[in-house]
Nucleic acid binder design. Structure first.
Lengths: 147, 147
DNA sequence: ATAAATAATAATAACCATTATCAATTATAA
DNA sequence: TTATAATTGATAATGGTTATTATTATTTAT
Protein backbone atom coordinates (compact mmCIF):
# COMPACT_ATOMS: atom_id res chain seq x y z
CA UNK A 1 0.00 0.00 0.00
CA UNK A 2 1.20 3.49 -0.82
CA UNK A 3 1.26 5.46 2.41
CA UNK A 4 0.90 9.20 2.16
CA UNK A 5 3.96 11.22 3.11
CA UNK A 6 3.89 14.78 4.31
CA UNK A 7 5.09 17.60 2.07
CA UNK A 8 5.30 21.37 2.44
CA UNK A 9 4.25 21.86 -1.14
CA UNK A 10 1.05 19.88 -0.73
CA UNK A 11 0.22 21.84 2.42
CA UNK A 12 0.70 25.10 0.57
CA UNK A 13 -1.51 23.93 -2.31
CA UNK A 14 -4.33 22.85 -0.01
CA UNK A 15 -3.96 26.03 1.99
CA UNK A 16 -4.15 28.16 -1.12
CA UNK A 17 -7.43 26.53 -2.08
CA UNK A 18 -8.91 26.94 1.38
CA UNK A 19 -7.96 30.61 1.49
CA UNK A 20 -9.01 31.82 -1.92
CA UNK A 21 -12.65 31.62 -2.93
CA UNK A 22 -12.37 32.29 -6.63
CA UNK A 23 -12.15 28.64 -7.76
CA UNK A 24 -8.69 28.96 -9.30
CA UNK A 25 -7.23 26.96 -12.18
CA UNK A 26 -4.14 24.81 -11.66
CA UNK A 27 -2.11 27.59 -13.18
CA UNK A 28 -3.49 30.15 -10.74
CA UNK A 29 -2.72 27.85 -7.81
CA UNK A 30 0.78 27.45 -9.24
CA UNK A 31 1.23 31.24 -9.24
CA UNK A 32 0.02 31.50 -5.64
CA UNK A 33 2.19 28.71 -4.33
CA UNK A 34 5.24 30.10 -6.12
CA UNK A 35 5.05 33.17 -3.91
CA UNK A 36 5.91 30.90 -0.99
CA UNK A 37 7.97 28.22 -2.75
CA UNK A 38 9.46 29.82 -5.86
CA UNK A 39 10.89 26.51 -7.02
CA UNK A 40 7.64 24.57 -6.97
CA UNK A 41 6.92 22.81 -10.24
CA UNK A 42 3.69 22.97 -12.21
CA UNK A 43 3.73 19.18 -12.29
CA UNK A 44 3.74 19.09 -8.51
CA UNK A 45 0.71 21.36 -8.44
CA UNK A 46 -1.21 19.17 -10.86
CA UNK A 47 -0.15 15.99 -9.08
CA UNK A 48 -1.32 17.26 -5.70
CA UNK A 49 -4.51 18.84 -6.95
CA UNK A 50 -5.48 15.48 -8.39
CA UNK A 51 -4.40 13.66 -5.26
CA UNK A 52 -6.35 15.99 -2.99
CA UNK A 53 -9.39 15.80 -5.23
CA UNK A 54 -9.25 11.99 -5.24
CA UNK A 55 -8.96 12.04 -1.44
CA UNK A 56 -12.02 14.28 -1.32
CA UNK A 57 -10.22 17.17 0.35
CA UNK A 58 -10.95 19.52 -2.54
CA UNK A 59 -13.42 19.53 -5.42
CA UNK A 60 -12.91 19.66 -9.17
CA UNK A 61 -15.09 22.03 -11.15
CA UNK A 62 -15.82 21.58 -14.85
CA UNK A 63 -18.15 24.38 -15.69
CA UNK A 64 -18.21 24.36 -19.45
CA UNK A 65 -15.22 25.52 -21.41
CA UNK A 66 -11.74 26.41 -20.28
CA UNK A 67 -9.30 24.67 -17.98
CA UNK A 68 -10.35 22.73 -14.91
CA UNK A 69 -10.99 24.67 -11.71
CA UNK A 70 -10.69 23.70 -8.08
CA UNK A 71 -12.64 24.46 -4.94
CA UNK A 72 -11.35 24.17 -1.38
CA UNK A 73 -14.90 24.12 -0.05
CA UNK A 74 -16.15 20.53 -0.14
CA UNK A 75 -19.54 21.20 1.39
CA UNK A 76 -22.27 20.41 -1.15
CA UNK A 77 -23.15 23.71 -2.80
CA UNK A 78 -23.99 25.09 -6.22
CA UNK A 79 -22.09 27.48 -8.45
CA UNK A 80 -23.08 30.39 -10.60
CA UNK A 81 -21.11 31.26 -13.72
CA UNK A 82 -21.29 34.65 -15.40
CA UNK A 83 -21.45 34.32 -19.18
CA UNK A 84 -19.98 37.80 -19.65
CA UNK A 85 -16.85 37.71 -17.50
CA UNK A 86 -16.56 34.01 -16.73
CA UNK A 87 -16.26 34.38 -12.98
CA UNK A 88 -17.57 31.61 -10.77
CA UNK A 89 -19.45 32.37 -7.57
CA UNK A 90 -20.64 30.14 -4.78
CA UNK A 91 -24.38 30.00 -4.28
CA UNK A 92 -24.93 29.85 -0.51
CA UNK A 93 -27.79 27.38 -0.58
CA UNK A 94 -28.55 23.74 0.10
CA UNK A 95 -28.37 21.35 -2.84
CA UNK A 96 -31.58 19.72 -4.00
CA UNK A 97 -31.13 16.07 -3.12
CA UNK A 98 -34.71 15.40 -4.23
CA UNK A 99 -33.58 16.02 -7.84
CA UNK A 100 -31.87 12.66 -7.77
CA UNK A 101 -35.08 10.97 -6.68
CA UNK A 102 -37.08 12.74 -9.37
CA UNK A 103 -34.57 11.87 -12.09
CA UNK A 104 -34.34 8.30 -10.84
CA UNK A 105 -37.91 7.69 -12.04
CA UNK A 106 -36.77 8.22 -15.62
CA UNK A 107 -33.52 6.27 -15.40
CA UNK A 108 -32.80 2.57 -15.75
CA UNK A 109 -29.61 2.74 -13.73
CA UNK A 110 -29.01 3.97 -10.19
CA UNK A 111 -28.53 7.72 -9.70
CA UNK A 112 -26.54 8.75 -6.66
CA UNK A 113 -25.75 12.41 -7.23
CA UNK A 114 -25.95 15.36 -9.57
CA UNK A 115 -23.91 18.39 -10.50
CA UNK A 116 -25.61 21.65 -11.39
CA UNK A 117 -24.15 24.89 -12.68
CA UNK A 118 -26.29 28.00 -12.94
CA UNK A 119 -25.58 30.48 -15.72
CA UNK A 120 -26.40 34.10 -16.28
CA UNK A 121 -25.00 37.59 -15.77
CA UNK A 122 -23.29 38.61 -12.54
CA UNK A 123 -24.05 41.78 -10.60
CA UNK A 124 -20.92 43.53 -11.86
CA UNK A 125 -21.67 42.84 -15.50
CA UNK A 126 -25.31 43.85 -15.02
CA UNK A 127 -24.23 47.22 -13.59
CA UNK A 128 -21.67 47.70 -16.35
CA UNK A 129 -24.29 47.02 -19.03
CA UNK A 130 -26.72 49.41 -17.36
CA UNK A 131 -24.16 52.15 -17.23
CA UNK A 132 -23.33 51.53 -20.90
CA UNK A 133 -26.97 51.84 -21.92
CA UNK A 134 -27.32 55.06 -19.96
CA UNK A 135 -24.28 56.54 -21.73
CA UNK A 136 -25.62 55.62 -25.16
CA UNK A 137 -28.94 57.22 -24.31
CA UNK A 138 -27.08 60.38 -23.31
CA UNK A 139 -25.08 60.39 -26.53
CA UNK A 140 -28.14 60.11 -28.72
CA UNK A 141 -29.76 62.96 -26.79
CA UNK A 142 -26.65 65.03 -27.43
CA UNK A 143 -26.76 64.18 -31.11
CA UNK A 144 -30.36 65.23 -31.40
CA UNK A 145 -29.48 68.45 -29.63
CA UNK A 146 -26.76 69.08 -32.20
CA UNK A 147 -29.10 68.70 -35.15
CA UNK B 1 -21.19 40.20 -42.90
CA UNK B 2 -20.10 36.62 -43.40
CA UNK B 3 -22.92 34.75 -45.08
CA UNK B 4 -23.17 31.04 -44.51
CA UNK B 5 -22.40 28.86 -47.50
CA UNK B 6 -23.66 25.34 -47.94
CA UNK B 7 -21.34 22.35 -47.68
CA UNK B 8 -21.75 18.58 -47.96
CA UNK B 9 -19.39 18.03 -45.07
CA UNK B 10 -21.38 20.20 -42.71
CA UNK B 11 -24.56 18.39 -43.70
CA UNK B 12 -22.94 15.05 -42.98
CA UNK B 13 -21.72 16.24 -39.59
CA UNK B 14 -25.11 17.57 -38.55
CA UNK B 15 -26.77 14.46 -39.88
CA UNK B 16 -24.43 12.23 -37.94
CA UNK B 17 -25.34 14.00 -34.72
CA UNK B 18 -29.05 13.80 -35.41
CA UNK B 19 -28.84 10.09 -36.17
CA UNK B 20 -26.66 8.81 -33.36
CA UNK B 21 -27.83 9.17 -29.79
CA UNK B 22 -24.63 8.36 -27.94
CA UNK B 23 -23.38 11.93 -27.58
CA UNK B 24 -20.20 11.38 -29.59
CA UNK B 25 -16.90 13.21 -29.26
CA UNK B 26 -15.48 15.21 -32.16
CA UNK B 27 -13.26 12.25 -32.95
CA UNK B 28 -16.20 9.86 -33.07
CA UNK B 29 -18.06 12.21 -35.40
CA UNK B 30 -14.93 12.36 -37.53
CA UNK B 31 -14.89 8.55 -37.81
CA UNK B 32 -18.57 8.48 -38.78
CA UNK B 33 -18.29 11.19 -41.41
CA UNK B 34 -15.20 9.55 -42.89
CA UNK B 35 -17.30 6.58 -43.87
CA UNK B 36 -19.13 8.89 -46.28
CA UNK B 37 -16.37 11.39 -47.09
CA UNK B 38 -13.06 9.58 -46.55
CA UNK B 39 -11.10 12.78 -47.18
CA UNK B 40 -12.83 14.90 -44.57
CA UNK B 41 -10.43 16.60 -42.21
CA UNK B 42 -10.60 16.57 -38.42
CA UNK B 43 -10.27 20.34 -38.51
CA UNK B 44 -13.41 20.56 -40.63
CA UNK B 45 -15.27 18.46 -38.08
CA UNK B 46 -14.19 20.70 -35.20
CA UNK B 47 -14.91 23.87 -37.16
CA UNK B 48 -18.41 22.78 -38.04
CA UNK B 49 -19.24 21.34 -34.65
CA UNK B 50 -18.38 24.70 -33.12
CA UNK B 51 -20.26 26.57 -35.81
CA UNK B 52 -23.37 24.43 -35.39
CA UNK B 53 -23.18 24.71 -31.61
CA UNK B 54 -22.88 28.49 -31.82
CA UNK B 55 -25.85 28.59 -34.18
CA UNK B 56 -27.77 26.51 -31.65
CA UNK B 57 -28.35 23.58 -34.01
CA UNK B 58 -26.50 21.17 -31.72
CA UNK B 59 -25.47 21.19 -28.06
CA UNK B 60 -22.09 20.90 -26.40
CA UNK B 61 -21.79 18.56 -23.41
CA UNK B 62 -19.07 18.94 -20.78
CA UNK B 63 -19.81 16.24 -18.29
CA UNK B 64 -16.72 16.17 -16.13
CA UNK B 65 -13.52 14.77 -17.53
CA UNK B 66 -12.61 13.70 -21.03
CA UNK B 67 -13.09 15.39 -24.38
CA UNK B 68 -16.10 17.50 -25.24
CA UNK B 69 -19.22 15.70 -26.46
CA UNK B 70 -22.01 16.78 -28.74
CA UNK B 71 -25.75 16.25 -28.85
CA UNK B 72 -27.95 16.59 -31.90
CA UNK B 73 -31.04 16.88 -29.71
CA UNK B 74 -31.42 20.52 -28.71
CA UNK B 75 -34.61 20.07 -26.72
CA UNK B 76 -33.97 20.89 -23.05
CA UNK B 77 -33.27 17.60 -21.32
CA UNK B 78 -31.00 16.13 -18.69
CA UNK B 79 -28.22 13.57 -18.98
CA UNK B 80 -27.15 10.64 -16.89
CA UNK B 81 -23.51 9.57 -16.78
CA UNK B 82 -22.40 6.14 -15.63
CA UNK B 83 -19.33 6.35 -13.41
CA UNK B 84 -18.33 2.77 -14.30
CA UNK B 85 -18.38 2.79 -18.10
CA UNK B 86 -18.66 6.49 -18.82
CA UNK B 87 -21.64 6.22 -21.15
CA UNK B 88 -24.03 9.14 -21.35
CA UNK B 89 -27.77 8.58 -21.54
CA UNK B 90 -30.63 10.96 -22.16
CA UNK B 91 -33.11 11.30 -19.31
CA UNK B 92 -36.54 11.57 -20.96
CA UNK B 93 -37.93 14.19 -18.60
CA UNK B 94 -38.69 17.88 -18.43
CA UNK B 95 -36.02 20.16 -17.02
CA UNK B 96 -36.77 21.91 -13.73
CA UNK B 97 -37.02 25.56 -14.72
CA UNK B 98 -38.03 26.39 -11.16
CA UNK B 99 -34.46 25.62 -10.07
CA UNK B 100 -33.39 28.89 -11.65
CA UNK B 101 -35.97 30.79 -9.61
CA UNK B 102 -34.92 29.05 -6.42
CA UNK B 103 -31.23 29.70 -7.03
CA UNK B 104 -31.95 33.29 -8.03
CA UNK B 105 -32.90 34.05 -4.42
CA UNK B 106 -29.32 33.35 -3.38
CA UNK B 107 -27.59 35.13 -6.25
CA UNK B 108 -26.73 38.78 -6.76
CA UNK B 109 -26.64 38.50 -10.54
CA UNK B 110 -29.34 37.34 -12.96
CA UNK B 111 -29.68 33.58 -13.52
CA UNK B 112 -31.17 32.52 -16.83
CA UNK B 113 -30.44 28.80 -17.06
CA UNK B 114 -28.76 25.82 -15.50
CA UNK B 115 -27.03 22.67 -16.58
CA UNK B 116 -27.39 19.47 -14.60
CA UNK B 117 -25.69 16.13 -14.99
CA UNK B 118 -26.82 13.12 -12.99
CA UNK B 119 -24.26 10.53 -11.97
CA UNK B 120 -24.46 6.91 -10.89
CA UNK B 121 -24.30 3.38 -12.24
CA UNK B 122 -26.10 2.38 -15.41
CA UNK B 123 -28.31 -0.67 -15.80
CA UNK B 124 -25.64 -2.62 -17.67
CA UNK B 125 -22.98 -2.03 -15.04
CA UNK B 126 -25.43 -2.82 -12.26
CA UNK B 127 -26.21 -6.19 -13.85
CA UNK B 128 -22.54 -6.90 -14.44
CA UNK B 129 -21.71 -6.16 -10.81
CA UNK B 130 -24.57 -8.36 -9.64
CA UNK B 131 -23.39 -11.24 -11.78
CA UNK B 132 -19.84 -10.75 -10.48
CA UNK B 133 -20.97 -10.90 -6.86
CA UNK B 134 -22.95 -14.07 -7.53
CA UNK B 135 -19.87 -15.72 -9.09
CA UNK B 136 -17.67 -14.82 -6.14
CA UNK B 137 -20.23 -16.24 -3.75
CA UNK B 138 -20.20 -19.47 -5.77
CA UNK B 139 -16.41 -19.60 -5.74
CA UNK B 140 -16.16 -19.24 -1.98
CA UNK B 141 -18.73 -21.99 -1.60
CA UNK B 142 -16.59 -24.22 -3.84
CA UNK B 143 -13.50 -23.43 -1.84
CA UNK B 144 -15.17 -24.34 1.39
CA UNK B 145 -16.34 -27.57 -0.17
CA UNK B 146 -12.77 -28.42 -1.17
CA UNK B 147 -11.40 -28.02 2.36
C1' DA C 1 -23.82 29.77 -68.83
C1' DT C 2 -19.57 31.93 -67.39
C1' DA C 3 -16.75 34.43 -64.67
C1' DA C 4 -15.77 36.80 -60.33
C1' DA C 5 -16.13 36.75 -55.43
C1' DT C 6 -15.72 34.43 -51.26
C1' DA C 7 -16.78 30.82 -47.94
C1' DA C 8 -15.31 26.09 -46.90
C1' DT C 9 -12.04 22.56 -47.23
C1' DA C 10 -7.82 19.36 -46.49
C1' DA C 11 -3.46 19.21 -44.72
C1' DT C 12 -0.64 20.52 -41.43
C1' DA C 13 1.50 23.20 -37.87
C1' DA C 14 0.82 25.36 -33.54
C1' DC C 15 -1.20 25.69 -29.08
C1' DC C 16 -2.53 24.77 -24.45
C1' DA C 17 -3.74 22.02 -20.58
C1' DT C 18 -2.47 18.02 -18.56
C1' DT C 19 0.15 13.76 -17.69
C1' DA C 20 4.31 10.83 -17.73
C1' DT C 21 9.24 10.10 -16.88
C1' DC C 22 13.15 10.03 -14.02
C1' DA C 23 17.11 11.28 -11.34
C1' DA C 24 17.63 13.76 -7.05
C1' DT C 25 15.58 14.97 -2.63
C1' DT C 26 12.98 14.47 1.55
C1' DA C 27 10.09 12.34 5.02
C1' DT C 28 9.21 8.33 7.66
C1' DA C 29 10.10 3.80 9.93
C1' DA C 30 13.26 0.42 11.60
C1' DT D 1 21.42 6.55 11.57
C1' DT D 2 20.32 4.10 7.85
C1' DA D 3 17.12 1.95 4.74
C1' DT D 4 12.78 2.75 2.38
C1' DA D 5 9.83 4.66 -0.34
C1' DA D 6 7.12 8.77 -1.41
C1' DT D 7 7.75 13.42 -3.35
C1' DT D 8 9.85 16.69 -5.93
C1' DG D 9 11.67 19.65 -9.96
C1' DA D 10 12.78 19.58 -14.58
C1' DT D 11 11.44 18.29 -18.72
C1' DA D 12 9.51 15.55 -22.38
C1' DA D 13 5.42 13.66 -24.16
C1' DT D 14 0.48 13.43 -24.93
C1' DG D 15 -4.15 14.60 -26.33
C1' DG D 16 -7.61 17.61 -27.57
C1' DT D 17 -8.45 21.68 -29.99
C1' DT D 18 -7.47 25.78 -32.77
C1' DA D 19 -4.92 28.47 -36.30
C1' DT D 20 -2.82 28.86 -40.92
C1' DT D 21 -2.85 28.55 -45.77
C1' DA D 22 -3.12 27.14 -50.39
C1' DT D 23 -6.74 24.91 -52.89
C1' DT D 24 -11.59 23.71 -53.91
C1' DA D 25 -16.53 24.35 -53.90
C1' DT D 26 -20.52 27.26 -53.61
C1' DT D 27 -22.81 31.31 -54.50
C1' DT D 28 -23.54 35.78 -56.95
C1' DA D 29 -23.33 38.89 -60.69
C1' DT D 30 -22.92 39.39 -65.39
Amino acid sequence: MKTLKHSRQRDAILNCLIERHDHPTADAVYASVREIYPNVSLGTVYRNLNLLADLGEIRRLNCGSGPERFDGDTHPHYHFICRECGQIQDLPMETFKQLDTRAQQHCGGRIDSHITYFYGTCQDCLSAAEKNTAEKANNSVDKQAQV
